[in-house]
Design a protein around this nucleic acid. Sequence first.
DNA 1: TCGATTGTCAAGTATGAACTTCACTATTCT
DNA 2: AGAATAGTGAAGTTCATACTTGACAATCGA
Lengths: 107, 107
Amino acid sequence: MEKPQPDIHRILHALGDATRRAIVERLSERPYSVTGLATPLEITVTAVGQHLQVLEESGLVQTEKVGRVRTCRLDAAGFQALEGWIRDLRPAWEQKLDRLGELLEEE
Amino acid sequence: MEKPQPDIHRILHALGDATRRAIVERLSERPYSVTGLATPLEITVTAVGQHLQVLEESGLVQTEKVGRVRTCRLDAAGFQALEGWIRDLRPAWEQKLDRLGELLEEE
DNA sequence: TCGATTGTCAAGTATGAACTTCACTATTCT
DNA sequence: AGAATAGTGAAGTTCATACTTGACAATCGA
């Protein structure tokens, strides 16, 4: 149950779900309780709890239970890992599809 | 069939699938044909074609058919949009969970 | 021109996961 | 103490979507 180091596959899988993205965007505003997240989404707290587990395991969200309330906020770890992934791929996607250059190199 | 402007939800949904991530990572190496992508993944070209449509619609991949071969490469548009999304969220996830500051502000 | 290669289209299957419900525990309030 | 609130856990349902197959079209090589 310790904080696993962020894994890009976990992260992208977590962000692949619309509800989880909604949770993330809500938490980008300010921290919320589980119920505070569930209400506007019109789903049960159980469902939110399940999503939170995925988000937490991917390092995108951090939660802390104090008393009976679990407070959820974004976690930098996952976002930094995601940033790093894109940065590492940059040389690949930044290739200018320069038509001229392409044709010249063709042969 | 025109290039739709990148939408972060499309993008994250596209990257949510493991096979599509595998395609992206393969294309980060160099451009590939549809068959060239399908073979190492051990899935049919039909399946790859379906994934390519999703990736293309999200602006992550660009394809061009020349003769009977469709050549696929990464597309900057989607990655730039993804970068922008993370950048915009930065203030939210960059909040230092400074224990001291937290406790002080509590009341 | 014939066969092999590359990809597309339509239609069907099936599996995973996003939910729900219900029962329960733990905390807070009066 | 009793009632209300916040969340957890197990188990079942259902629906999206990632695949397949099979038939076909277009291109290329011999």
